[in-house]
């Protein structure tokens, strides 16, 4: 268990990860380009990983569990990004645009 505030340097990383989370969500909410949306997801993938690293460091020593988590979750993230790019290519075939505004044939 960790009392936050005792380890000065890990807090910086934690704040960084929080910022990545917020930036990722901001990108998802506001960016019109599908590429940018995928980039936002990529940023979101980074956020929990960074948090894991920070918390692993905060345990006092470096926790090997968190490293394993991060590596696995990075590969999962890579799979997600790969698939999303494949879907984007598929979308391009049908819509000839990467603007997410255009992808609104399904609604209501």
């Amino acid at each position: 268990m960790v009392a936050i505030g005792t380890y000065g340097d890990f807090e910086v990383i934690l704040v960084l990860s929080l910022m990545m989370l917020i930036i990722g969500v901001y990108g998802l909410v506001s960016k019109k380009s599908a590429i940018k949306v995928i980039m936002a997801i990529e940023i979101l993938v980074g956020a929990p990983n960074l948090a894991f690293i920070a918390f692993g460091y905060a345990q006092g020593t470096v926790d090997p569990m968190t490293e394993a988590f991060v590596i696995i979750s990075l590969s999962v993230g890579a799979a997600v990004i790969g698939l999303s790019l494949a879907f984007l290519r598929n979308l391009w075939k049908h819509f000839h645009t990467t603007e997410v505004d255009a992808y609104t044939t399904l609604k209501g």
């Binding site: 998802l28 506001s30 997410v100 505004d101 609604k107």
Partner: peptide, 17 residues
């Protein structure tokens, strides 16, 4: 109510947020 389901991704994400 139908206007709530626009199908726009940004809109969906904002609603979620």
């Amino acid at each position: 109510l139908r206007n709530l389901q626009t199908g726009d991704l940004n809109y969906n994400m904002s609603l979620l947020g």
